[in-house]
């Protein structure tokens, strides 16, 4: 049994103003299944509108229901989370699942000092005394390598730089020693030198604690640097699932193949980039058949008519493409 198991997760949002039709809704996530083991890093890779963030939010239990409708199963150590009461669910968040978001300024409370925010969490959840909570808060700020932690806990979030605020959010996320950290684009707003520091910090914490990491990102470079396993999402579905080595050595889905070819490289200069034609589809208006067929060089009549399902391949990975076998032969 994996630490975190997601099975056939579906999330939809009702669309207002569509003629009062109650059945009209946008399907943001359409049957996502994932498994994450202790100490491993699983990256969910996707572009805007792919459903990667909604998937993360459904696992974290922070979607407002209603309006969101969440179906399927999310199990942590075998325990179903989707049927918990909001109060039980709140306990899981933070205690067992830590969260880090892209925008630390929005995630931190601007009117409390960093020490107060960490301290409150530790007093309420761990029952620590005021002074013990303060000591532990300093330890945590020090743990995320913020210099002069003792003094900095008295500062407000706006007094920190973007990279430092991200570290504070990580300190809050690991304060209760969760088994799983879910990080949704944790370094996207950061400069590249600061991004490298923050990813290194997360990796270091992971090595020390054995925590599992679910990393939501659009950045292929970040995936290649830190992930063990990769799930590529497109239009609310996982289109490919494999180890990071498999994905970069020879993708089993044309979308992954296109993404890799369209990315300029820092270590060499290519004459022309491959460009996937068109734009990611609007989840409210998905085409029939394979959602990628309008942009796919391999699309044929089968692709235009039939939705491919995510099927396992002999080497352990899975691909949702009618042409997956040809792809692998070409890719070696």
């Amino acid at each position: 049994m994996a630490l975190l198991e997601v099975e056939d997760l579906r999330v939809s949002f009702p669309v207002p103003g569509s003629g009062g039709d109650a059945t009209s809704s946008v399907h943001a996530v359409n049957g996502v299944s994932l498994a994450l083991e202790s100490g491993r890093t699983l990256a969910i890779l996707g572009e805007s509108g792919s459903g990667k963030s909604v998937t993360a939010q459904a696992v974290m239990g922070i979607l407002d229901e209603p309006p969101a409708r969440v179906a399927g199963s999310v199990r942590l150590r075998g325990r179903e989370l989707l049927t918990l009461t909001p109060k039980q669910r709140d306990r899981v968040s933070g205690e067992e699942i830590g969260m880090v978001f892209q925008d630390a300024m929005a995630a931190l409370n601007p009117v409390y000092t960093v020490g107060e925010q960490l301290g409150e969490l530790l007093r309420v959840r761990r029952g620590l005394s005021r002074s013990a909570a303060r000591r532990r808060a300093v330890e945590l700020v020090d743990r995320v390598h913020i210099p002069a932690a003792k003094d900095r806990v008295r500062d407000y979030p706006h007094q920190f730089s973007g990279g430092m605020r991200q570290r504070i959010m990580i300190a809050l996320a690991i304060a209760l020693e969760p088994d799983v950290l879910i990080a949704d684009e944790p370094t996207t707003a950061l400069d590249v030198t600061v991004q490298a520091q923050v990813m290194e910090l997360i990796a270091e914490i992971q090595r020390d604690s054995g925590m599992a990491l679910l990393l939501i990102t659009h950045d292929l470079g970040v995936v290649a640097e830190v992930a063990d396993d990769v799930a590529v999402m497109y239009a609310g579905r996982i289109v490919e699932r494999a180890t990071v080595q498999q994905v970069f050595a020879g993708p089993a889905h044309p979308y992954t193949e296109g993404l890799l070819a369209s990315m300029p490289r820092i270590d060499r200069r290519d004459e022309e980039l491959y460009a996937i034609p068109g734009a990611p589809p609007n989840p409210a208006r998905l085409p029939a058949g394979c959602p990628f067929h309008l942009r796919c060089p391999r699309a044929d009549d089968v692709c235009r008519a039939t939705l491919p399902v995510l099927e396992p391949l002999p080497d352990g990975r899975a691909s949702a493409c009618h042409h997956r076998k040809e792809l692998l032969h070409v890719g070696g």
């Binding site: 590249v192 290194e200 290649a224």
Partner: peptide, 23 residues
């Protein structure tokens, strides 16, 4: 340059990275 993630998982553990301190 060394901070830019390289889209190549092979050999990533051996990659040397200069981590600048601070902002």
């Amino acid at each position: 340059l060394s901070a830019v993630p390289v889209p190549e998982p092979v050999g990533r553990a051996q990659r040397k990275r200069i981590l600048l301190a601070g902002d």
